[in-house]
Each structure stands twice: as structure tokens, then as C-alpha cells.
Design a binder for these strands. Sequence first.
DNA 1: TGCAAATGTTCTATAAAAGTTCTATTTTTG
DNA 2: CAAAAATAGAACTTTTATAGAACATTTGCA
Lengths: 196, 196
Amino acid sequence: MHPRQAEILTVIRNHLQAHGCSPTLAEIGDALGLEKNTVHYHVKAMLGAGILERSPGWRGLRLPQGDDEDASTSLPLVGRIAAGRPIEAIPGRDALDLSTLLGPGRYALQVKGDSMIDAGIFDGDYVVLEHRDVAQDGDIVAALIDDEEATLKRFRRTTSGEVLLLPENADMAPLHYAPERVRIQGVLVAQLRRYR
Amino acid sequence: MHPRQAEILTVIRNHLQAHGCSPTLAEIGDALGLEKNTVHYHVKAMLGAGILERSPGWRGLRLPQGDDEDASTSLPLVGRIAAGRPIEAIPGRDALDLSTLLGPGRYALQVKGDSMIDAGIFDGDYVVLEHRDVAQDGDIVAALIDDEEATLKRFRRTTSGEVLLLPENADMAPLHYAPERVRIQGVLVAQLRRYR
DNA sequence: TGCAAATGTTCTATAAAAGTTCTATTTTTG
DNA sequence: CAAAAATAGAACTTTTATAGAACATTTGCA
């Protein structure tokens, strides 16, 4: 497939995800800096090649079945947003794929307490973890202490071989443990907060 | 869904939230600058498409609660994790369903800058937004100022009708604007940070 | 119950929007 | 350097949204 066609396909896919209908030729053109007839030139070719399908009427472009495997776990990634600047597109990146959070050994926990607020992990947030029994220095881990207490902390190993579990909260003190008292239950993969 | 239909849906949603009943066709028309028959034209199509439902009588429009559950977008939700306590199960809740983040009108942005760090939204985080053009007091919104600058801020309306955009960062000052200078682009649905 | 007001529905004509075709020009490619 | 492809601009056709008016229905109230 030609690069332009791939770009057009991306625009269509995003628009379908974001608005539930295909964009118009002019809208595709706006997104890519092209005239609508130029878009039509490509779309026509893509319709002929079976890369695209269409229903009659406006906004009738469709993706052939199978194109959209992981669309059900993806969000259109429009760009970056910042203070004082327009939203800027992220080159080469057009979707936020939630399926990458999934996989064998992945599980979720809801966070209780404020021990990680300085790391931006708040009470009530969800964290996605990957099951592991070893951790690297600096990882945020779910750890079980003395087979009794579970906690989410930043993991560090001292030169003397001790395990340090660091809360990310200025009001709380680091915890020292002998390695055999600490069982890693998983390492942090992602953090999610729902607002509505 | 066509853009006009999305607008109508937004008006209905807002009215339901504000008044507890659906708006009349004329009220929807007033909100969008359309005649009631034009609204009816769209509403009829939306009823046929299942985007809307209705009870007999006036103000009978309802939003269908079609929440598709897809197991492939879910993570096992093991429980809560806290400092000093074992992981405790969450009663009646056994999955973190990521598909609830998806849907028409939802899109993602990557955050740039530190204006929302006190709300736990960091540079590089992803935010999921729902496209709306009105916001409620206290919502975190993506707003376009003077059709030029896009920004993620907490939204508030002063008693004098001015719009306040509040950074969640002690080092930054609130921004005051006349309402017509601010265009809401979406309201915050979720925040996601990836660690690996 | 019967009436008036409010709301919802249907009809038609028209303006606007979207898609298509044509040709000329620019850019790319072998 | 020539051929092919991509693009822009304009003209054109088709589709759709919209307004305006008329008509039908529901609701509230006397």
C-alpha cells in the first residue's frame, strides 16, 4: 500500500473510532493538508483495490472486515496537549492501544491509601501489575511482607543486600527488610484513574 | 454517527443531567440553532439506529444503556492493595473493564507539561477525553482558547459568568476568560500512565 | 369532558454539503 | 530527461440537511 493510502486509512480509522462515522473527503484532506479531490483520487484507488469499502451517501466509507482487529481496544491518539500551545500531532503514533496492558500474568488492583501520592498514584486509582517474583532496582512493586501485609512501593536493594521499600510520600519513612521477608507479587505496568 | 447526531446526543445528555428529563425537540433546536423539525429529522434517524430510545409522551427521549461487555478488554481485578494490610478482595467486582473507556466521542491525548501535577496528571501521561462542548463546574477539560491554544485544565464558572481555567499546580495562576473565548473540546474520562 | 397550549410529525422546496469528473500543473521516479 | 504519479483548482452532479408551514397528537386545566 502506498504511504498516502496508509495515511488516509489512519485518518479514517481514527475518525470512525472517535465519531462513529467516516470522515468526508474534505475532512480527510484537512487532516493531511490535501485537497478533497486528491483524497478522492486515492480513495477511488483504494475502493478498487478492496482496501476500503463504502455505503452510498455521505460519510459512507467503511473498513473491510478484519482490518480493525484491535480497534475494540484502541483509542484514537490525537496528539499532545499542553498549556499555551495548540494540540500537536504525534508523528507515527495514531492510537493508544489498551490491549498492550493485557496479557498473561497481568492483573489489576485498586489502590488504597496515600503512600504513593508523590508518584501520582492516588487513593482509588487502579494499577495494572505483571506477575513476577523478582524486581529490578527502582521498579514499583506489589510486595508481600512476612506473608501477611501487601503493599505497593518502590523497590530498591541496598549494598548490604537488604530490601528497601520506599513510599513515594514525603510524610512516610522507607521500610527496611531482610530479603527473605519480602515476596514480590508483581511489578507495576500501568496506572489508571477514572473520572467518570 | 453523524456530527449533528452527536451534538443532539450531547444536548440530551446535558439536559438529562441538569433537569432530570429529556429536552423537547424545540429546546434541542434552540440549543443548536435549528428548527424543531430539523431536530426531529435527526432524532427519527437516531431512534431507528438505536442510538436513542423513547417513551411515549413529551420529553420521552432516553439514552439506551447498551454497554457491551467484552472479556478481551478486561483484567482480573484482584482487590485493593494498601500499606500495612493484606490485599483485600473487592466484593462484587472482579474485573477492570477497559472497554468502558472506549466509545464514540472518546479520544486520547498525551499530556505535555506540568500544569496538572497536583491532580496526579504528569508529563507524558495519557488522558482519555469524551467530546463535549459544555462542561460542568469542576470538570477537567481540554479547552481551546481563542481557537489557538489548547490546554488541559479544571473548569469553573464564576458568578459573573466568566470562565476560570485552573491549573492543578501551586506554581501556576488561574486563567480568566470571557466565555466566548473558550471552546470546550472534551471532558476528562480517565488518566493512564504506562510504566513498561 | 372539552378546549387550548404545547409538543411531536409530515410534507415540500431549497440551500448547503459532499462526492465526482475534468484538466493543467507539479512532483516523483526510473 | 521522459513517463508516471500525485496534486490543485474549478466545474459539475448527487445527496442531504434545513426551514417553513401545515397537520396530528398529547397534556394540563377549566
